[in-house]
Amino acid sequence: MTTEAIKNTAASADILNVEDERRIDFAHHALLLLVACILGLISNWVATKVDPMAALPGMALLYAISIVGLLLARFVPFYLPSVAWISLVAILATIPGVPGSAFIVEQVGKLNFLALATPALAYGGLALTQNEFHIARTSGWKIVIVAICVMFGTYMGSVVVADVTLKLFE
């Protein structure tokens, strides 16, 4: 990739206000990822009753894949989001026929995706930035009514879709 293309990619990330993974504090992110893995092991244990020591190799593999993806995002000379690098590494590591892929799939199979996603989604739903508080303060009371209507409509829509789907498979 040319130097001009790298500059254009970095400029695009700045214009879109995207955090370029090449600027992150790797040690800090690795520590946060380790905390997320520990919480994931606990939530997997609670949800599936799989002993954390039995699920530890699978979680360690997910951690290693994530670290490799973060390293690629940081050191490859063109911008691609770290989630894309992590996904690419995971896909390549689990392709049938790749040495060790059967072991990786077996170990990660002891982890329940929903149990791992729930704490992350809960945090994402609760995390509010300074900018979001400012928007809420300046929007006034009308935004509360709109938000309640949107949440109610989304919930009711989900209920209807779930009910229709369950009726189809009875």
Rank of each mutant, 00 (worst) to 15 (best):
Asn112Pro: 11
Val161Ser: 04
Val146Asp: 10
Ser158Cys: 14
Phe78Gln: 08
Ala64Gly: 14
Gly157His: 04
His134Val: 02
Phe152Tyr: 12
Val98Asp: 11
Val46Pro: 03
His28Glu: 06
Tyr155Leu: 15
Ser158Glu: 15
Tyr79Met: 08
Gly40Ser: 11
Leu33Cys: 12
Gly58Pro: 10
Met156Ala: 09
Thr154Val: 00
Val108Asp: 04
Glu106Ser: 14
Phe133Ala: 04
Phe78Lys: 06
Leu116Ser: 02
Asn112Gln: 11
Cys149Gln: 08
Ala60Ser: 13
Met156Arg: 10
Phe113Met: 13
Thr129Asn: 01
Lys49Gln: 15
Leu34Arg: 07
Gly157Ser: 05
Ala115Thr: 07
Gly125Trp: 07
Arg74His: 12
Leu62Gln: 04
Trp85Leu: 01
Cys37Lys: 00
Val46Ala: 06
Asp51Thr: 06
Gly109Cys: 13
Ile91Thr: 15
Ala93Lys: 01
His134Ser: 06
Ala60Leu: 15
Val160Met: 03
Val89Gly: 01
Leu88Phe: 15
Met53Cys: 03
Pro52Asn: 08
Ala127Gly: 10
Leu126Thr: 10
Leu61Trp: 05
Leu62Gly: 05
Trp141Arg: 15
Ser101Arg: 02
Lys49Asn: 14
Met59Tyr: 03
Glu106Met: 11
Val150Ser: 06
His28Cys: 10
Leu31Met: 12
